[in-house]
Design a protein around this nucleic acid. Structure first.
Length: 330
DNA sequence: CGCGTTTGACCAGCGC
DNA sequence: GCGCTGGTCAAACGCG
C-alpha cells in the first residue's frame, strides 16, 4: 500500500513549550534575546559551521524518525486492511455455509423452521446486544412457505432495536399497514402481528412483526412480496429514530443483504463493502437497500474501530508518536 | 361515521 | 384421521 498519502503529522500545532518559571516580562525577554544575538555575532566562522552541521544532523535525525514512524503506521494500516478483508471473507463464508445448510436440509419445509431461522440469524449477526439491527433478504425462505401460494414471493427481514418493555409491535418503514391479525406462536412468548399494505388496495405485501425470542429488545419484521406502488412518502421513515424519544424508542438499522438469497448467488462477484461511512441520520431518505448497505458498512467500521482501540500495538504506537512530538518541541 | 385494532373462529398444511 | 400450528377472516370495539 502506498504510504505517501498518509500524513504522519499529528497536527498538534504545538508552540514551543516554556515552563511556568519562564513567564517573564517582555522587556526581560527582549534583553536576553539581544544578549544572545551579541554572543552569536561574537562567534567565529568555525563555530557557525559547527552549528549548521549540528542543525543538519538534527534535521536528518528528525527525518529518519518520521520515516520510521511512517513505515510503522503503513504496516499497521496494511495489517488493518488484512484484518478487515479476513473479517469480510469470514462473514461471507458464514453466509455461504448457512445457505448450503438451507439447501441441504429439509427442515425448512417444516413450518417451525422459519421461526428458528429468525433466531439463528440474530445470533449470527448480533451475538450480543452491542450491535444494532440488520436485515437479510431471504428469497429462499419460500421453501418453508406453502408452495402453492408463495411461488415468487420476495421475503426480507428487518431487525429493529426497541425497548424490551415496549409491547407495541410497530415498525415504522414509511408504508401504510393495516393490522389484520395477531397470534401467539409456539416458540416465542411474544405475539406475532400480521399486517397488510393498505396504501394500495392491490398491493400484495404483507408484514409480520414479532419480538425476537432471544432478545426482546429486537423486533423482527418480515416482509413478504414487493410493493406494486411508489413509496407513499418522499421522506421515508426508514430511519434511525433517536432513542431519547420516550414514545418511539426505535433504532432501525438494516444491512446489506447478507444473503442467502438466490438473487445474490447469481451475482458475478461477491458483495463488497466499501469503507465509506454513511451515517444514518434522522429523516434521512433512504430506500431499504440503501439503509441496509449503509448500516452494514457502519457495523464493519465499528468492528474495525473496536479492534483498533483494543490493539495494544496501535495504542502504544499512537502514544509514542504523540509523546515523541511533544518531546521534540520541548 | 369511517378507519384501524382486537380477538376468537376458522382454514390449511404437516406430522404422527 | 386426529391434533398441532401458523395464517387469515370478520365481527366487535374503540377512537377521532
Amino acid at each position: 500500500m502506498d504510504s505517501t498519502w498518509v500524513n504522519t503529522s499529528l497536527g498538534l500545532n504545538l508552540v514551543p513549550l516554556c515552563s511556568a518559571d519562564d513567564h517573564q516580562a517582555p522587556a526581560t525577554m527582549q534583553h536576553e534575546l539581544e544578549r544572545d544575538y551579541a554572543q552569536f555575532q561574537g562567534n567565529n566562522a568555525l563555530v557557525k559551521e559547527e552549528q549548521v552541521a549540528s542543525h543538519h544532523d538534527v534535521l536528518a535525525e528528525e527525518l529518519n524518525r518520521i520515516s520510521v514512524e511512517n513505515k510503522k503506521l503503513t504496516e499497521m494500516l496494511t495489517a488493518l486492511c488484512e484484518n478487515y478483508n479476513s473479517l469480510q471473507s469470514h462473514v461471507r463464508e458464514l453466509m455461504i455455509t448457512k445457505q448450503q445448510q438451507n439447501n441441504s436440509s429439509d427442515i425448512y419445509r417444516k413450518r417451525k423452521a422459519g421461526s428458528e431461522d429468525y433466531n439463528n440469524v440474530i445470533g449470527l449477526i448480533s451475538p450480543g446486544t452491542n450491535t444494532d439491527t440488520c436485515s437479510i433478504s431471504d428469497d429462499q425462505e419460500n421453501s418453508c412457505k406453502r408452495p402453492k401460494e408463495h411461488t415468487n414471493l420476495k421475503i426480507s427481514r428487518v431487525y429493529v432495536r426497541t425497548d424490551a418493555s415496549d409491547t407495541r409491535l410497530i415498525v415504522k418503514d414509511g408504508y401504510q399497514w393495516r393490522k389484520y391479525g395477531q397470534k401467539v406462536t409456539r416458540d416465542n412468548p411474544s405475539p406475532r402481528a400480521y399486517y397488510k399494505c393498505s396504501f394500495a388496495p392491490s398491493c400484495p405485501v404483507k408484514k409480520k412483526v414479532q419480538k425476537s425470542a432471544e432478545n426482546p429488545c429486537v423486533l423482527v419484521a418480515t416482509y413478504e412480496g414487493e410493493h406494486n406502488h411508489m413509496h407513499p412518502e418522499s421522506r421515508a421513515e426508514v430511519t434511525l429514530i433517536a432513542p431519547v424519544s420516550p414514545n418511539q424508542n426505535q433504532q432501525l438499522i438494516t444491512s446489506t443483504p447478507l444473503s442467502v438469497s438466490p438473487s445474490m448467488a447469481k451475482r458475478s462477484a461477491p458483495p463488497t463493502f466499501s469503507c465509506d461511512i454513511n451515517r444514518i441520520s434522522p429523516n434521512t431518505t433512504m430506500c431499504p437497500q440503501e439503509t441496509e448497505a449503509a448500516a452494514f458498512q457502519q457495523f464493519l467500521i465499528q468492528q474495525m474501530a473496536s479492534s483498533l482501540t483494543k490493539d495494544p500495538n496501535f495504542t502504544s504506537a499512537l502514544a509514542a508518536a504523540i509523546s515523541g512530538r511533544i518531546s521534540d518541541h520541548s
